[in-house]
Structures are given as C-alpha cells and as structure tokens.
C-alpha cells in the first residue's frame, strides 16, 4: 500500500461522521487525481468539472459505505470517479471523436507520491500484460483508461464486435490467472 493511504481512509471515515473539515482535506488531496480521470474519459473540461462535482457529492453521501479491508481508500475513490465518468459518457447520444483536450491541461509535475499506485503493483500488471498478445493488451488498457465500450473498441481496433469481446474476456481471465500466480 502506498504511503498516505491510511490517511485517506481516515479522512473518508471522518467524512462519514459529517466532518466538513475532513471533507475539505480529502478534496484537497484527491481532487487532482480524480479530476484527471474525469478529464481523460470525458475529454471535455466543463463536463469533467461537472462530473467531478457529482463525484464528491457521491463521496460525501457514500462515505459510510467505504468497505474497510476490501478496497484501499484510493481504489474506492477512483472507482467512484471512473464509473461516474463512464456513466456520463455512455449517456451521450453521439460518440464524438474530439481532440484530446486532456493532454493540454495536464499538470507538468508527477503525481504526489502518496497517490501513486505502488510501483510493484504496476510492474506486476505490466508483466502480466506482456504475456498477452500485444493487441489484446492494448485493447484492455484502452478500455480501462479511456472508458471505451465494446462497440467503440471494435471500431477503433477495426475488428468485429465478437472478436473484441473474445479478446477482452480471454484477456481478463488470463490477467487474473497471471496476477494470482505472481
């Protein structure tokens, strides 16, 4: 577990106690990371900002449901942000091919150390991705990071929908098997 995770877990339980100062601190420490997720998936500044507001409303309301022991605090927060951003994107009627605005506004500096995923975890998943066929590993990464649906992935990788489904399903199962082995 990365250093600082305990502090974030502590802040979330304080938020569950309706401690507004803890909420402000939690926001200060985690909003840039979660904002980065919303921007990357939604590719639109205003939509990402609206989504981030919704995310912290959900964090305030759902703080007491933070499942202790099961997920790390940061994983819990990231899941709320990612799934909300994906929901907002899916709700859009047309899938546009906008310019990637996320890159323009990204901070130059690296993540604060306490929010970075432990390097060991990253190495483990990279090693497991290396065991997959390259296009399948790419599709898995694109699905998680960009929030693309099966349909969008099939279009972007120019393969039939069923092929993409097979790639990702097999990829996920191999990934799990590999992560358990390592």
């Amino acid at each position: 577990m990365a250093p600082g995770q305990d502090d974030i877990a502590e802040l979330i339980t304080r938020v569950a106690l309706r401690d507004r100062r803890a909420f402000a601190l939690l926001y200060e420490r985690t909003a840039p990371k979660l904002h980065g997720f919303c921007l990357r998936i939604l590719r639109d500044r205003t939509r990402a900002e609206d989504a981030l507001q919704d995310v912290y409303v959900k964090v305030w309301r759902g703080a007491a449901t933070f499942a202790p022991g099961r997920a790390s605090a940061m994983t819990w927060l990231i899941a709320i942000a990612r799934h909300h951003a994906i929901d907002v994107m899916r709700a859009r009627v047309v899938v546009e091919d906008e310019l990637d605005t996320a890159g323009e506004v990204a901070d130059a500096g690296p993540d604060p150390e306490h929010l970075a995923i432990a390097a060991g975890e990253r190495r483990r998943i990279d090693a497991c991705l290396d065991e997959l066929k390259p296009e399948r590993a790419e599709a898995l990464k694109a699905a998680y990071v960009e929030g693309y649906s099966y349909e969008e992935l099939a279009r972007r990788f120019a393969v039939p929908l069923n092929t993409m489904r097979t790639w990702l399903r097999r990829g996920l199962m191999s990934l799990r098997e590999c992560l358990e082995r390592r």
Partner: peptide, 12 residues
C-alpha cells in the same frame, strides 16, 4: 487499479 497510473493529475 494499476492501470490508473496512466492518468495524470490535473488541479481542478
């Protein structure tokens, strides 16, 4: 979660 490293932090 390790895929999340691909996201850059952006101050709102």
């Amino acid at each position: 979660a390790a895929f999340g490293d691909a996201y850059q932090s952006v101050s709102p």
